[in-house]
Design a protein around this nucleic acid. Structure first.
Lengths: 193, 193, 193, 193
DNA sequence: CATGAATGAGCTTTCATTCAT
DNA sequence: AATGAATGAAAGCTCATTCAT
């Protein structure tokens, strides 16, 4: 019996990717609690296949958002390398983050959930996004553009929360509120005790 | 005429109150989707009793939060009657609202949920809280303390979102972020386009 | 403390009668399985009162139909006393019975049910209706108008069954089919082995 | 293409059949309202399996009786092809029908029920049994052996009703009464107005 | 006696998860 | 590896029945 053939491996990868796409779509529509059957169905595979690739729902959620989280991280690095005022760089990154959250809104919900099964997602954020945000935030704080008493985790969480959609409160409103929040974080802003 | 005795009525009220307390606790711990059995258990009654008092989950959720929502409304009225600068009155009211949300945090989640069964809760907010907030907001806008382009529903929603707790993000952080958001709503604040 | 007053007794009787009427109505509409609450509600009393008067559903069912069953018995006696050909008397009695069943159709269902809780109803039929029917049947058989191999219980049951209504099968059809059955019971009828 | 294996399919069929058998038995003992758990238990499967195969109770009831109803239809066709006097063919078919009903007596009850969930069963009867009966009935009426004023639906319903068993009224009695009913449907029978 | 609140068993239904094929 | 049938634990909801007032 030959070792796993390339064709086989390719098929496996295809299944995996189909699953990730299906899950991403399902999460957007029904939240991260979307029924496993639904995800399997969208991907055109059996439920067993879902469990083979992602033993727990958390694994699936993590995999779905890892790539996109990493894009955010990469964007932060890119912005740092550009000749921008640090405050401006932070603003742009936050704006991109909001865009991201309000577009794939499953993530916002997932980040919010205190489901212990999503711990790995939270770690992902802590390990990737918080440092990315912190690097931009620190720079802005060092040049005095942003209040030094602000920490990246709090800011990230606040922005994430503001990005949760609701009736009469969509992308536009979230963007505006986040902009106001950032305005309130400027050093020159009215006192916040 | 079959008269329901006072003692009977008292017992009924006690049950009802026990249920409301139990539900409030369950909502805080498990969200508004807490199993009816769980709520019944906490209240020391059978499931049937829950359904007798609150035929639908929405009735229960509504009852749990109605009183507290009305307190917020009343506070707004009280603040309007005080000789305060309008911006200050708004600040205080919002601070109280945040306190309220972060203390009984089930409500934040409930307000967020797009569960159609919670429509009455949303109406409650729209009918009570939005006008209450609007009255204070309008006053502050009229004297030029707050950006005229802000509407009560958006503000309320944003504050509600910012009040959702999470790991490493509690009352203190929510309060701080809300304060910054309000700072960003001042007329003198850095431009928000 | 005086013994039960006349007024009290009268009230009790009123409750009891209201219950019987309510139950009869409920049985017609929803069958003998009608919810106890429904019956209590129609009678304008509490469920406890139902249980006080009729500890089991069978007691209630029995009470509801006892009077009407006795009317049938009485009719048989009356017909026996009239100068009618025995076969004719039997026909008339059966026709009246069908009328009765198709009008208060809850009874048909009740008679059919093999619910052991309705045993007393079955006894009632056995004790009252079967003898009543038998007296008329015997007479007709003695004068040779009806096949001697027919027994009252079987005939009664058959007539009861034929009187069960259904879609496209009502009083008219039941009456016609019972008439044909009786025709098939005549001595002169085509052989039935 | 993911091919469901033959062995798999065979297992599924076995489950399905076990379920049909279990349901048939449960229906005979407890009527078509038999608890799903009971049926699942008899079949040695979990409740979920029942719902997988038969999403609604009506589906199950329909499946249980469909085969047997079709047997009746087939018998009618067979009898039509035989060189029998039309009245005789009708008699035989009716006798077989009675046998069928009194043997699998759950059906009788099911046919009687006005539960709207059983609409498909009623349609089945209307679509299959009524035409089958009508074909034999028409033939008998055309040659003048049976009263022309009889329609198939009424006859079928009457026979069905007569076949409902009860205490002291079983197969034998039902058969005898049906025979008398048919006798009463003969053209030569005593007048039925 | 009457009341109706409370109880809790029992039913339906949904899904996450396992596992034989 | 992939499949999807089977499982069974929840959970919602309904009612018959009891019992304190």
């Amino acid at each position: 019996m030959p070792t796993t053939s390339g064709a086989r491996r390719a098929g496996v990868q295809r299944s995996r990717q189909a699953l990730l796409d299906a899950a991403a779509a399902a999460f957007v529509e029904n939240g991260v609690q979307a029924p496993v059957r639904d995800i399997a169905g969208r991907a055109g595979v059996g439920v067993g296949t879902v469990y083979r690739h992602f033993p727990t729902r958390a694994d699936l959620v993590g995999a779905v958002y890892r790539h996109q989280v990493q894009e955010c991280t990469a964007l932060a690095a890119a912005l740092r390398r550009q000749p921008l005022p640090p405050g401006e760089a932070l603003d742009r990154w936050i704006a991109a983050f909001v865009d991201f959250l309000t577009t794939k809104h499953g993530l916002g919900e997932a980040l919010l959930s205190d489901d212990p099964g999503l711990a790995n997602l939270h770690s992902l954020v802590l390990d990737e996004l918080v440092p990315a945000c912190a690097s931009l935030l620190d720079a802005a704080q060092r040049v005095g553009e942003v209040d030094a008493r602000l920490d990246a985790l709090t800011l990230l969480r606040a922005v994430g929360n503001l990005s949760l959609p609701g009736p009469g409160y969509g992308r536009a409103e979230a963007g505006q509120m986040v902009a106001r929040l950032l305005a309130g974080c400027r050093t020159a802003a009215p006192r916040v005790d």
